[in-house]
Design a protein around this nucleic acid. Sequence first.
DNA 1: CGTATTTATTATCTTTTGTTAACGTTTCAG
DNA 2: CTGAAACGTTAACAAAAGATAATAAATACG
Lengths: 198, 198
Amino acid sequence: MPAEQDISLLFNLINSFVPLTQQDKEHLIPHLSYRNVKKGDYWLAEGEKEQQVGFILEGSMRHFYLHDGEEKTTYFYFQNNLVSSYFSALTGTPSKLSIQAMSNCRLISFPYKMLVLMYELSPKWERFGRKLAEYLVIGLEERMVELLVLSPEERYNRLFNSNKKKILERMPQHLIANYLGITPVSLSRIRKRAGTKK
Amino acid sequence: MPAEQDISLLFNLINSFVPLTQQDKEHLIPHLSYRNVKKGDYWLAEGEKEQQVGFILEGSMRHFYLHDGEEKTTYFYFQNNLVSSYFSALTGTPSKLSIQAMSNCRLISFPYKMLVLMYELSPKWERFGRKLAEYLVIGLEERMVELLVLSPEERYNRLFNSNKKKILERMPQHLIANYLGITPVSLSRIRKRAGTKK
DNA sequence: CGTATTTATTATCTTTTGTTAACGTTTCAG
DNA sequence: CTGAAACGTTAACAAAAGATAATAAATACG
């Protein structure tokens, strides 16, 4: 059972999508567990079906696809983020991506099935599900346009000036290169051209 | 007021997300309108806020972003698709993209506001909203991974072998190039390399 | 129809990125 | 503490893509 203050962090996030009553919360609380994932360990490995939704109390994670024997990191998860292979959970298919801890992580988790069950139990939770998916649509749409319309260099500069700059500050550069859809060598050159703005 | 059989096409689509009762349907029907959009005309122009959701009975559309004075087409809409700047509707901000008819189009439309109102009125509709957003997440996630992980040539080949091949068959090639995130000249070369599989 | 516009291909040249490898530095684990 | 692994930069070369322009073909439309 997770600590009180940790649980309230999770509900702070959920509340930012849909304000919940104490009663709504009670539905979820019995199904929360506390988990530790050590640096380098996996939250989810390729081929497994996603069963859990995590909430990161501390630490960070990445997810990556294996393509031609290479790990292609396409997303990062930080403190206060939900972490899950949403795609695998939604489709019920084995995950094509792996999620790995970049540092020792403390999380709260609950079964994805419980979330779906709560969609049935309460319109509030159903609304949360909608808002969450809509939030993801907005993020994915923005990122996809950048990939389609901007050059790698423009993408780097935009990331540098965005609210996701913490990715640049906290993640190794070759993973950022993946995230931008280019090679590490290419990113090194782009940074040099840009005058290595610290 | 749209024709009976046209309305039933719309509900066929909605039913594939969430089965509706006759009563659920009655909520929406009074707000449906029939619309024609001529080839070349706009469903939505950049800078406008999206107010409507369309359902294409006949015809096709594209949406594009203006970048450095160039139109970058990043999505196509066909018969039986919903058409809307979901991003603009969700965020309530002026649209950064324009949606234009590629051929004469017949549509049913209803105000996005009505959809949101129905989210309030009925959990069934709320669920539809969730399923729709989840469906979009799945599509966006897949496409984004392709953009990050595959080369332009691999992306072309995958499109060629996908269930979206109709894009290749029905759309002009320079727009497909945009859709793949490359230039028309480059796509022409890729097709040549690929042996111009018919 | 027939003319104007759009579209696709090809060629040439430039720029960028990918690939591979070497090197020095940092990080990490035993 | 120390050797191994991981990381970032740089160089040299190859491959691919972008830019521009010319041309040919297809299409649109008055």
